[in-house]
C-alpha cells in the first residue's frame, strides 16, 4: 500500500525535559482513515503539529507523499487540509468570505474556487448560512464552518484534530458522515479524538497513544483481541444478597464480579454461553432481575487494560 505519511522515531522534547512524543513511528496509507486515540495530553496534537511543521521536533524524520516535510514544503502543503481543535475563523468575515479566504490560500483560480466553496458548503450543510457571520452561528454550525475551511480546497490528505469536541449529537453525525464522504472521494484522513465510539465507527486503523508513546495499533477488532476480557454481562437486580456475589465469582469463566447501585457487573475472560449460564443461575436461585445484557469489550476496556486508566481521564 502507498504510504502517504511516514513518521520515524519522532521525539518532541520540551525545554523542561518533558517528552510530549517519545520515539514514535507510524505510517498512514492512501485512502484510509487513521484514528489517533488517546486521553488529553497523550501527544496526539503534538504529533500532528510536528507532522505539519508547526512544531520543531527533537529527533526523527517525517515524510509526506514521499518527500521530507519542512516549513517551506509548499508543494506538500498545497495538498494538505487541517481542521484544528479550536474553531479558527475570522469573526469579521461571513461564512462564504471565510471559505473564500482560506480556500484562496490554496486555489488561485476564482471560478474553480467558487465551485470548491459551494461543494464544501453543501458537504457540511451550511447552504442556508452563507451570509451569516460566525457569531450568528450555533456551536455545531461553527464547528461545521471550521471543518469546511479546512477541506474546501479538496486536499488529498486531511488532519482532523478533535473536530467534534463540544458538539451536539446531530452536528456530530453530520461531521462524521462528511468525513466518510471525504474518504470515499479519495482523501486520506488522520483523525484524532478521545471519543472511542467515533474511532470505532469511523476509522480503518487505530493507534492508541499515551504519554507520547504508542500503546497499541491495529483495526478495532484487532485491538479488542488484545484485551483479556472476552465479555461483560450486566444485570439490574435489587437488593442482592452478598452470598450470591461469592457464588457467581466461583462460576465458570468468571473473572471479576462487582455489585453497586443495584447493578451487577460480571466480566468473563473467555468461554461460550456465559449469558445463558448466568440466566440459569439467577433462575435456580430465584433471584428476580429487571434487565440482563451482554457486551463485547470496548476500546476503553483495551485502554484500561493497557494503561490502568480510563480514556477520558
Amino acid at each position: 500500500m502507498e504510504k502517504v505519511i511516514e513518521v520515524k522515531d519522532l521525539t518532541k522534547e520540551y525545554n523542561k525535559g518533558i517528552k510530549a512524543v517519545d520515539n514514535l513511528s507510524l505510517n498512514v496509507y492512501k485512502g484510509e482513515i487513521l484514528g489517533l486515540l488517546g486521553p488529553n495530553g497523550s501527544g496526539k496534537s503534538t504529533t500532528i503539529n510536528c507532522i505539519l511543521s508547526l512544531l520543531n521536533y527533537s529527533k526523527g524524520s517525517i515524510k509526506i507523499f514521499g518527500k521530507e516535510m519542512n516549513p517551506n514544503s509548499y508543494d506538500i502543503k498545497s495538498q494538505i487540509g487541517v481542521v484544528f481543535q479550536d474553531v479558527s475563523v475570522f469573526d469579521e468575515l461571513t461564512v462564504y468570505e471565510n471559505l473564500d479566504y482560506f480556500c484562496g490560500l490554496y486555489i488561485k483560480d476564482k471560478k474553480l474556487r467558487k465551485q470548491y466553496i459551494e461543494d464544501a458548503i453543501e458537504l457540511v450543510g451550511l447552504t442556508e448560512f452563507k451570509k451569516y457571520y460566525p457569531k450568528q452561528l450555533s456551536g455545531g454550525l461553527l464547528r461545521r464552518l471550521n471543518i469546511a475551511c479546512g477541506i474546501a480546497h479538496k486536499p488529498k490528505l486531511i488532519f482532523f484534530d478533535e473536530p467534534t469536541v463540544a458538539v451536539d449529537p446531530q452536528s456530530r453525525n453530520n461531521i462524521l458522515n462528511g468525513i466518510k464522504k471525504l474518504r470515499d472521494n479519495g482523501a486520506t484522513i488522520v483523525y484524532t479524538t478521545h471519543y472511542m465510539e467515533e474511532v470505532e465507527t469511523l476509522c480503518d486503523r487505530i493507534i492508541i497513544l499515551d504519554k507520547g508513546n504508542i500503546l497499541a495499533r491495529g483495526t478495532s477488532d484487532e485491538l479488542k483481541e488484545l484485551a483479556e476480557i472476552e465479555e461483560k454481562i450486566t444485570v439490574e437486580v435489587n437488593n442482592l444478597d452478598v452470598k450470591y456475589i461469592e457464588k457467581i465469582s466461583e462460576l465458570k469463566n468468571v473473572d471479576v464480579v462487582t455489585y453497586s447501585a443495584n447493578t451487577l457487573l460480571i466480566t468473563y475472560k473467555k468461554g461460550k454461553n456465559n449469558i445463558s449460564d448466568m440466566v440459569e443461575f439467577l433462575k435456580n436461585n430465584k433471584i428476580k432481575y429487571n434487565k440482563i445484557f451482554s457486551e463485547r469489550p470496548t476500546l476503553n476496556d483495551v485502554f484500561l487494560e493497557l494503561t490502568g486508566k480510563e480514556l477520558r481521564d
Partner: peptide
C-alpha cells in the same frame, strides 16, 4: 496576530497553507 501560528488558530491555518 492573525498571521502567526503561535498566537491564534487563524495563524496556524495560514501557516499550514502553501503561502510564504
Amino acid at each position: 496576530d492573525n498571521s502567526l501560528p503561535y498566537l491564534k488558530g487563524n495563524g496556524k491555518r495560514i501557516t499550514v497553507s502553501p503561502t510564504k
